[in-house]
Design a protein around this nucleic acid. Sequence first.
DNA 1: CATTTTTGTGTTGCCTAGCGAAACAGCCAT
DNA 2: ATGGCTGTTTCGCTAGGCAACACAAAAATG
Lengths: 288, 288
Amino acid sequence: MKGKPGRALAVMSGREDSTSRSAVPLLDDEEGIGAAHAEDRRFVWALARGLEILRAFGPERTALSVGRLSAMTGMAKPTVSRLTHTLAALGYLRVVDKRGHYAPTPAVLTLGYPVLSALKVQDVATAPMRELAEATGCLVGLGARDRLSMVFAECTPPSWLVTLRLGTGSRVPMATSALGRAFLAGLGEAERDYLLGRLALRHGAEWEALGPRVADGIEQVRARGFCIVDGEWQRDVRTAACPLITADGVMGLMAGAPGYTITNEILENEVGPRLVELAAKLSPLIGS
Amino acid sequence: MKGKPGRALAVMSGREDSTSRSAVPLLDDEEGIGAAHAEDRRFVWALARGLEILRAFGPERTALSVGRLSAMTGMAKPTVSRLTHTLAALGYLRVVDKRGHYAPTPAVLTLGYPVLSALKVQDVATAPMRELAEATGCLVGLGARDRLSMVFAECTPPSWLVTLRLGTGSRVPMATSALGRAFLAGLGEAERDYLLGRLALRHGAEWEALGPRVADGIEQVRARGFCIVDGEWQRDVRTAACPLITADGVMGLMAGAPGYTITNEILENEVGPRLVELAAKLSPLIGS
DNA sequence: CATTTTTGTGTTGCCTAGCGAAACAGCCAT
DNA sequence: ATGGCTGTTTCGCTAGGCAACACAAAAATG
């Protein structure tokens, strides 16, 4: 690229061995918004940065300070300060203590409602998913892609299961989860190859071992309609998943449980087929 | 405490703006982001505008064009075009047809997860709420304030009820819903008076009749712990609600059903007390 | 069916608003 | 007080908002 230091977050920084600067501002397991839009004149950075602030929060990061946000996102502190100030003025963030820690408020939930409503999740999916969850003892989830993760649109844990903490809006990685592999299997070739390329880029060296396992999951779906992942995403969690093609695009349906409550055989012979059956039933109902 | 609102509306940036302006940019039943921050140098307008774009979508407006968004929000079309372009590049919006209609994607759900996680909704609230819902035949909801509405953090409809379409992230007006009135009753005096003032401003002439009914709801809560609203929010929907004080602030708990499935007596003698009981149980568990 | 009307999106010029580096102001702790 | 923190203010330079224009496609009209 060119030596213009101009904008483009700190992702492409690293010209000199800077002392105090955090090397890479990547959030959790996500890729930043980086340089992809560096020359896009229609791209408004202020909005992208503000949303990255909201994304920085998570289950174990419920309250963050300006400095912490600055380090996590790679933005300058004054910028973060202004963005948090704005988000607080709009009601999406609030100050939780005198040290200036910010936390998201329920107002952000309103942003998500239109999608849930458009997908008709509550209308058609929740009840049969819950039924399957209670019948099999698995947590049953419906998810779609977000960047290189899968995000749950609906999540129905069986009433007695408390160890798996997932819910609407939570994410699992695409490459190591059954849900992600099933989703990939449901895509057209072009889009799947594109995503596999990005995944390879993101996982770096470990892709050597991971890539074939992803390909195997896709092959499982092709062979019998669903795939199984045992302990790759989280230790001692076994999951089956199948793709779900809707009018609004490809999603995925998964069912999983801790290893000590379910065997791979049950997952394969009972849960998997019922999952495929449910996906077929939901397929024409979900989305517009 | 907040600063003085003290300004009506309009006036975005230019002060000599005498040209004909698009009338009023109000979204559905919300107040715009108007003037309160007109002179706040720390306020980032681009971010506020982008979030208003996301807010413009709703259950019956699942896909919107640039022109429509421009009319709804009062922003210029090129501005909206760039914001939608940005949101699409980030994955929060996608183009759904050749005419350039945009629709939100499941990616926006990730923004809401941190709050649900922080409130521990799934961990402690969902199960007992569902239990109450099945036992009483009411939809049971847990909500918090967003601007002048109440937004649901969790919503558990009984399995057989399909006419009430509410879910996580959906909103009901503060003044005409039992949930809103119960929330107001749970606040401290200063904040309650501030909100009542804004509500009076927003409802204009009809506040003459509405205000006393709101006050009556608050009085009901004071007397017996919950209040009842019959048909004011939606025709033929009866609802009881009570405040729920958590470590993260005041919320509200409500239970409601269509009029032909429940009587006011049952609501008053059975549902209301159980609601109060549940709120007391959840109070120490929800939030940090 | 071609043409005009309507509706709606994407580009320019100009000027305001916002980003970022460095300096400035609070807070605690020792 | 003196550092070592962290969050907020100047100020230059650049990105982005707004108005007007240009343009594409559906709808209306003969």
